[in-house]
Computed example of a mutant assay.
Amino acid sequence: MTTAPGTLDHRALSADAWDRRLRADRDLIERLMPDALRDLHGVVVARAQQVGARALILSGSTARGHRTEISDLDYHLVGDKIATRDLSSELDLHVLSTEELRTEILDGDDFIQWSLRFGRIVFDDGTLLEAIRLMAERQPWPDIERKRDHAAKSLELARRVVESGDQDGALVQVRTGLSLAARAYLLWKGEFPMSRAELPEQLLAAGETGAAHALQACIQGDPSLEILGDAVLEGANLLESSTSATGTLRGTE
């Protein structure tokens, strides 16, 4: 596990400060939730409460106010699973126990850290507050090597799908692989990746113009197989850059 000093302020995690965040997050959820997804959100919340879940976090692009046509409705639920088979395919629900929550934080899982840092808390019995206090105490930084390996495997699959000529399948896989590569690169630079829709802007700010434009095309456009092939190369370049000795590897200085 690597650590990044100073990324969370323990003083901001008092009970009063947490109550203020909960109220603010609930207001933001009300403002950010698209009308077409309000019923789905309500069902998820109700079912989570019915099974006695400890906490529920709205995550991803919806929580950031950057939804696109390909955005899911992402949640982290701490507690027992809920029934979802009868719900929209737009729902992407990640379920974990309290112990798994702690383990994933300390093992460098970037997704749960993202949700705790930038997600919107729907409800919490104190479990998430303790999790964030743990992050403030230990200052874990996501496991860059794990993210890089995941991205490399995804890009290799993307390359094969592009070569197969399946344009629709290639778009999905290239978008996934390039997003993972962008996240690995940004983590290596010492910057926490935002939602997928925000990654192109982060890449531009980091000077990675080609990768930024390629990812933007995969998110909002309908690129040809040739362009998708070039996007795979952009992802590979990001991974190659993130293995050099001149980055800002958080917690390893």
Rank of each mutant, 00 (worst) to 15 (best):
S14P: 11
A24D: 06
V51A: 06
R64K: 09
I57N: 03
T62H: 10
Q49N: 11
S59A: 11
S61W: 05
G42W: 08
G60L: 05
P5A: 07
A83N: 11
G60I: 01
L56D: 07
L40E: 05
P34K: 06
I29L: 12
A24W: 01
Y75P: 06
Q49A: 14
S61Y: 03
G42R: 04
A63N: 11
V43S: 01
L37C: 13
V45N: 01
I82R: 01
V44I: 08
D74R: 00
I57A: 08
I57C: 08
T68H: 04
D35E: 12
R11Q: 15
V78G: 00
R21D: 10
H10F: 15
S71E: 11
R23T: 14
D25A: 06
L13K: 00
D35W: 00
G79E: 00
R20Y: 00
A15C: 12
I29V: 14
T62F: 08
I82M: 10
P5S: 04
Q50Y: 08
G52E: 09
A55N: 08
S59D: 12
D9N: 11
P5W: 14
L22W: 04
L56M: 10
Q49L: 15
L22S: 01
S59N: 12
R26K: 02
A63I: 02
P34E: 07
D74T: 02
R67I: 15
D19Y: 09
R20I: 12
A48I: 02
L13H: 00
D72L: 06
L56H: 08
Y75F: 09
P5H: 09
L22D: 00
D35L: 08
G6V: 10
R23Y: 02
P5I: 09
D39L: 13
G52H: 05
R31L: 14
L8F: 10
A4I: 03
G79K: 00
I82N: 07
T3D: 07
D35N: 10
E30G: 13
T62S: 14
L56C: 05
A36I: 07
W18S: 04
G79F: 04
L58G: 03
A24L: 07
G42V: 12
R47A: 02
D27Y: 09
M33Y: 05
D74I: 00
V44A: 02
S59M: 04
A36F: 04
V43T: 10
A53T: 07
R26Y: 02
H66S: 06
L8A: 13
M33H: 05
G52V: 07
T68W: 03
R47K: 05
